[in-house]
Design a protein around this nucleic acid. Sequence first.
DNA 1: GCAGGACCGCCAATTTGCCT
DNA 2: AGGCAAATTGGCGGTCCTGC
Length: 309
Amino acid sequence: MSYLTAPESIKAVIYQLSSAQTLWLDTEVADYKNKPRLSLIQVLTTPNEIKSDHLYLFDVLDQPELTTLFIENIMANPAIEKVFHNANYDLKFLGKKQSKNVTCTLVMAKKIPYYLLPVPNYQLKTLATQLGDFTNIDKQEQSSDWGQRPLTEKQLEYAQMDVVYLAQIHQCLLKLQPLAAPDPTTEDLNKLATRYQEIAHQWKQLDSEITHIQDRLKQAMKTQHVDQTDSFKLSSSQRKTLKTTFAQLSEFVQTQNLELDFPLTLTQALQKQLGETIQQLPTQEENTTVWRLIPKAKDHNSESEFPPF
DNA sequence: GCAGGACCGCCAATTTGCCT
DNA sequence: AGGCAAATTGGCGGTCCTGC
């Protein structure tokens, strides 16, 4: 790992990185509560490598010109793929608008269906533990003082591990992606249907029990006036919906000379009410195709499972 | 032709969850 | 703590299908 503080060295490495293909990046921010400012930019050039020429920590505290150089040469360069976890956050400090070719592992992870990636949450730490062979990941330094200098050994350690975890997570997610988004042309229809039938029954049972329990809990907490248990909180909210009638609205728009126009769906009920006169009304037809999956009835085992009385 | 149900999408308000 | 995006919640309403 190279921890760089001298502006000249940082500049040199930024230029050197300009020809990279993919970079795994993270930032640390000082004073995030009040006046957030960038403290560190961590760069990993090769997954699973923490040698000095693969992992850099740029100390950019109060050196906006270095950050700008980084944004212009790295972030804005569409030829370099930039990988972040929760890119939205880091991009606030690294040229949100100008940035090109950014990958976010948080977004990627959320696109993987739960059954393929059963994690309680999508924090970097959680994903690193689940997807990588990391244990005892220490996140304590996350909320430490990134505005102090010198930074402690622990902080530097933490800062570099973040990009290492990131790259590891990214690699795993790339492997999971084809499973999550398979090519429809090569799907095995029989295999899919079989699997569906295998789990449909269990799913119905679980799903109905879950909603049933939810409803019962809600009802019970409401009537017993319990707003909290160890596991649940009961929340309520008021909602307000403003209503008027079509006639009143139409009249109002006319008399007030308002510019108000929008498409209105003539539902079947409305069409019926309008009757033949609908012919004289300028209308627009919109055709959409709706695709549905209809399970074919397979009666043969319903009787054995649920014999009639 | 109609009632009822399954299914789906929309809406407003609220909550959650990510980062430092 | 705070900003932001996305998910969730619960109600409403639309369409289609089915059984009578």
